[in-house]
């Protein structure tokens, strides 16, 4: 996948492999690598899926594999929850 110089992307890398993890953590955590992710602007145009360099928002240059070429804030306001929707009407009746 081609990344243009200056394109805002997210990269990731393994900060710690499972073998390098701390001793006193639960098994489920010890078995997986510690992955780091950060966003920044691609330093140069690149093709392929190797590590690239990015400039972060604090001005550091970091390297990683592109995990998202067009980052989006996908967290949202969820869905209306029926267990919550009944609270307002119920309490307003109490206060009448």
């Amino acid at each position: 996948m081609a990344i243009q110089k200056g394109q805002f992307v997210e990269v990731s890398w393994a900060a710690l492999e499972p073998s390098g993890r701390s001793d006193n953590i639960p098994e489920s955590t010890k078995q997986v690598p510690l992955i780091a992710r950060v966003k920044g602007f691609a330093v140069e145009t690149t093709e392929g899926s190797d590590d690239i360099s990015i400039v972060t928002l604090s001005g550091r240059v970091l390297r990683g594999k592109v995990c998202d070429s067009a980052p989006r804030y996908s967290h949202d306001f969820g869905k209306p929850q029926p267990e919550l929707q009944r609270i307002g009407p119920t309490l307003r009746r109490e206060l009448v």
Binding site: L16, L34, A36, R37, S74
Partner: peptide, 26 residues
Amino acid sequence: PEILEKGRACEAYGAEVLQLTVGPEL
């Protein structure tokens, strides 16, 4: 989701946000 929102807010103020998977090695 709550932590994603806080990361977004930090980036909105111009901060670099280093996001990690679970672990005290942070």
